[in-house]
C-alpha cells in the first residue's frame, strides 16, 4: 500500500511512526541518490556513504522539506551538500599535495548494462562527458536531464535561481555536445586506423 503513496505522504507517515513508509522512500529514491553521488564523486564507495548519510539525515531531520518544493528535491539537496563537502575536502587535500589547482579530474562512472544495451559505445562517451563538466554544471544537468527534476526543483536543490539554472543547463548541454562530438570523431579515427592496418 505504501507504494501507492506519494513522497510527502510517505514522509508524513514515517514521522508518524510508520517505519515501512521510510523503507518505501529509500526503495524509491535510494538508487537515484547513489547514482547522482557516483557521478558527482566518481567513487562508488563514497557514493554509498553519501546515500546512507542522506537518508540518515532525512530520517532524523525535523526540518520542513517544503522549502525545497518536493521531497525528492529535498533529498537531492542533502545529497548535493554532502557531495560538495567531499569535493571541497578533496580539493584542499589535492591542492596541498600537488601545489596546483586542478579542476575536476574525475574518471567517468561506468555505464550500466542497460545503458550499454541501449547506447552501445556511446554510453561510455556520455559518462565521460558528464564527468568532464564542472561540478556546478554537472549537478544541474544530472538533476534536470537524468533525474527529471523540474527547473524549479533543480533551482531549489542547488540553491540558485531558475534563470541561473537555465543558463548553466544551456552551458552544460553545449559542453556535452562538444565532448560527445569529439569522442565520436576519436572513435571514427580509431576505426579508420584499425581498418587501414
Amino acid at each position: 500500500m505504501t507504494e501507492q503513496l506519494d513522497d510527502a505522504a510517505l514522509l508524513a507517515r514515517y514521522r508518524g511512526g510508520d517505519e515501512r513508509a521510510f523503507d518505501a522512500l529509500v526503495d524509491r529514491w535510494g538508487s537515484a541518490i547513489k547514482g547522482y553521488a557516483i557521478r558527482m564523486l566518481g567513487s562508488r564507495d563514497q557514493a554509498e556513504d553519501i546515500f546512507v548519510e542522506t537518508f540518515v539525515r532525512a530520517a532524523a531531520a525535523e526540518g520542513p522539506w517544503e522549502s525545497r518544493g518536493t521531497v525528492r528535491a529535498w533529498l537531492f539537496t542533502i545529497a548535493r551538500r554532502l557531495c560538495i563537502d567531499v569535493l571541497r575536502r578533496r580539493k584542499v587535500e589535492r591542492e596541498a599535495r600537488r601545489g596546483l589547482v586542478h579542476l575536476a579530474d574525475l574518471r567517468g562512472a561506468d555505464p550500466s548494462p542497460e545503458a550499454r544495451a541501449i547506447l552501445g559505445e556511446q554510453a561510455a562517451g556520455v559518462e565521460a562527458a558528464i564527468a568532464a563538466l564542472r561540478p556546478e554544471h554537472r549537478e544541474v544537468l544530472l538533476l534536470r536531464a537524468v533525474h527529471g527534476l523540474s527547473e524549479r526543483e533543480t533551482a531549489g536543490a542547488v540553491g540558485r535561481t531558475v534563470p541561473q539554472v537555465r543558463s548553466q543547463l544551456h552551458y552544460a548541454r553545449s559542453r556535452v555536445r562538444e565532448l560527445l562530438a569529439r569522442s565520436e570523431r576519436d572513435a571514427r579515427r580509431r576505426l579508420r586506423r584499425r581498418s587501414a592496418r
Partner: peptide, 11 residues
C-alpha cells in the same frame, strides 16, 4: 540520450 544512460553501474 542522458535519460537513456540512466543510472551508472553500481547505483
Amino acid at each position: 540520450l542522458l535519460g537513456a544512460a540512466g543510472l551508472p553501474a553500481g547505483a
